Simulated scan of single mutants.
Amino acid sequence: MKSLIIGSFSNKVSCYSSPLPDSSSSRIPTGCYHVSLRTSKSNRVIQSQSSLVRRNIDRLDKTLLLYRKRSTKHVASAVSEQPTEPDASSPQNFLPNAIDAFYRFSRPHTVIGTALSIVSVSLLAVQKLSDFSLLFFIGVLEAIVAAFFMNIYIVGLNQLSDIEIDKVNKPYLPLASGEYSVQTGIIIVSSFAVLSFWLGWIVGSWPLFWALFISFLLGTAYSINIPMLRWKRFALVAAMCIVAVRAIIVQVAFYLHIQTFVYGRLAVFPKPVIFATGFMSFFSVVIALFKDIPDIVGDKIFGIQSFTVRMGQKRVFWICILLLEIAYGVAILVGASSHFLWSRYITILGHAILGLVLWGRAKSTDLENKSAITSFYMFIWQLFYAEYLLIPLVR
């Protein structure tokens, strides 16, 4: 048999191969068989050998297939056990993202300023320790919540009207970045306006209601893009809107809310209220002027004729510093005229320190760097907060 098989090598040769278990492109020969056509006997021998080889090949293929299936299962199992990155759109991450977006939408520095101003001015109506009653704290809370709702309406409407401008100046805001749709913005703004008026009405305080109503009118006229309105396009009118709300309405209306509605007293305006109104008039002008300094690029593109666009960043910057230093100087004089020694010292020292800190920070600010200018703008808001801590101490 051996000689027959060997003798058949000169005839037809057939080979087979089988794929490797870990590669579909690599093949390894596993055997060959030879067919001889000389005699029928030799054919039968070769056929029997060939059948044996084929059976072995079938067994090998089945083994390889089973191995491949098991390997695939192990790999899939291993992959499924690997830690994956959390999906930002998953339910557990939706709430933090929503809070962050609303936080940016609400312009928190304005919200903090509004809350501090209401608390500070309300304290000016306090004449004795017994005035710190439950009615006082409820009255202050009602004013803060109602003003907060109106604040969201005003800053939200401004963002709805300035989406294209904010894509240049403030791309991190939710409407400009696309996190909020226009429809979402409209729903939020409308809802908070309704909530503000609803709370002001059920409280029943006319000073509070008129403060909300006038703020609504001026905030709408400032931002909304319809004929005869969008007053932010005109530098002087825009500044007057901000002064009216921040310097006059906040000081006078919320003071009267506590003085007349909560305490039921006559509407008198003592020296601290007059000082607060005058000082915040300076501060509101500075905020109105300075807020446009970082936004000069977008304002130029969209035709907003702010003082910064007309006069340049450097000139407006130093005008703001000069106005604030004048305000601090006047505050020092007012403090020096106080009949209370503790009020005199605190007012003089406090405003002197704030004036010196302002001057030092201004001298070190790079006016060619937008980030530095934006940081300085937020520093002005910090001075704004600090002033409302000093105002109740002016006596």
Rank of each mutant, 00 (worst) to 15 (best):
M1K: 14
D22M: 10
D22P: 00
I28W: 12
G31F: 05
R54K: 11
R59T: 14
L64W: 05
L65C: 09
S77W: 09
D87T: 10
A88K: 12
F94S: 14
G113M: 12
T114K: 02
V119F: 15
S120A: 15
A125G: 11
L134M: 11
I138A: 01
F149G: 00
N151M: 11
I163Y: 02
I165V: 11
D166A: 04
G178N: 07
T184E: 13
G185P: 00
L199P: 01
G219H: 02
S223W: 07
M228L: 15
F234P: 01
L236H: 08
A247W: 02
Q259H: 09
F261T: 14
V262G: 03
P270M: 08
K271V: 12
I274D: 03
V286W: 00
A288H: 04
F290N: 09
Q305W: 03
S306Q: 07
I319L: 14
L323D: 05
G335H: 02
S338G: 07
Y345W: 12
I348R: 02
N369H: 04
S371T: 11
S371V: 06
A372K: 13
I373D: 05
S375K: 15
S375T: 15
F379G: 02
F384A: 08
A386H: 05
I391Q: 07
R395A: 15
